[in-house]
């Protein structure tokens, strides 16, 4: 058999398998059940407007708080990890390894229920607020490593140029290294943001007042209320509306950075 014939034959087989699989799904799937359980128009309509005015809004608020908090704490940890003073490096390394090694759910659970009882602590925003603090603490560990890598990716010649002009180490970091590092880490940090949007769903474990509910808690309550899975589909749509533009943005930023250097 000629190689070109063999290639064509192989491709034909791949198409045949694909068509057979699609046909099987269409024939086997219980469309009626899917429609009534997942795509019930009345239940879908009932989700609005609260799914936007409360749930999506809270998801975005929690994400922004966790991201900004994680970014500031992560920057501090990254600078500690690069510090000439050894104990700072040890603390930062221990922190990062600890919180990257634990499930976020466990940390949130501990902050929402164990820590307040043990230390007689009344977290702002109740157990949900405590869970949010846990999310900040966990995300800071990931962002610290990203920021550290960004700082180290700034070419050594930049430091030498700044120091040779008589700028001290602090000014060199603030006006020469960090501005360039931020540009380098923007795509990975945007990725962290997308992950964080999804991780706010873990806050459901903390328990929330009605007006504190974010998308996943809201959807879960909806499933119980209507004995129908449509609220999950509505929440999923909301997540995608928020995350898809961001993942597109990451792709564009990465392309721009590749061109830039």
């Amino acid at each position: 058999m000629k190689p070109s014939t063999r290639r064509r034959l192989f491709r034909g087989v791949l198409y045949a398998i694909f068509i057979a699989a699609v046909a099987a799904v269409i024939l086997v799937a219980d469309w009626e059940a899917i429609r009534t359980s997942f795509l019930n128009p009345e239940v879908f309509g009932e989700q609005f407007p609260a799914i936007i005015t409360t749930a999506a809004k809270n998801t975005i608020i929690y994400t922004v708080i966790a991201f900004i908090g994680g970014l500031l704490l992560g920057l501090a940890l990254a600078l500690m990890k690069l510090s000439p003073v050894a104990p700072y490096r040890w603390v930062a390394t221990a922190y990062i390894e600890l919180f990257r090694g634990l499930p976020a759910l466990l940390v949130i659970f501990a902050f929402a229920f164990a820590v307040p009882i043990a230390f007689q602590w009344r977290p702002p925003g109740g157990t949900a607020g405590a869970g949010l603090i846990a999310l900040i603490i966990v995300s800071a560990a990931y962002m610290a490593e990203t920021i550290r890598a960004g700082i180290e990716a700034v070419p050594g010649g930049q430091l030498e140029a700044a120091r040779s002009l008589g700028m001290n180490p602090s000014w060199t970091m603030v006006s020469v290294v960090l501005p360039q590092a931020i540009r380098i880490v923007t795509p990975p940090l945007t990725n962290e943001l997308v992950i964080l949007i999804k991780d706010t769903s873990l806050l459901f474990i903390a328990g929330m007042a009605l007006n504190q509910r974010e998308l996943t808690t809201f959807a879960r309550d909806g499933v119980s209320q209507y004995a129908n899975a449509t609220p999950l589909v509505a929440a999923a749509l909301m997540y995608l509306i928020i995350t898809l533009p961001l993942t597109q943005l990451v792709a564009r930023l990465e392309k721009r950075n590749k061109r830039g250097r």
Partner: peptide, 24 residues
């Protein structure tokens, strides 16, 4: 330097004024 090592995030004036302001 051989590799110039200009600050890529600043324009020409920014490159020339940064250390004057920060160090001098």
């Amino acid at each position: 330097f051989q590799q110039f090592n200009l600050f890529p995030h600043l324009n020409v004036l920014g490159n020339l004024t940064l250390a004057q302001r920060r160090a001098k």
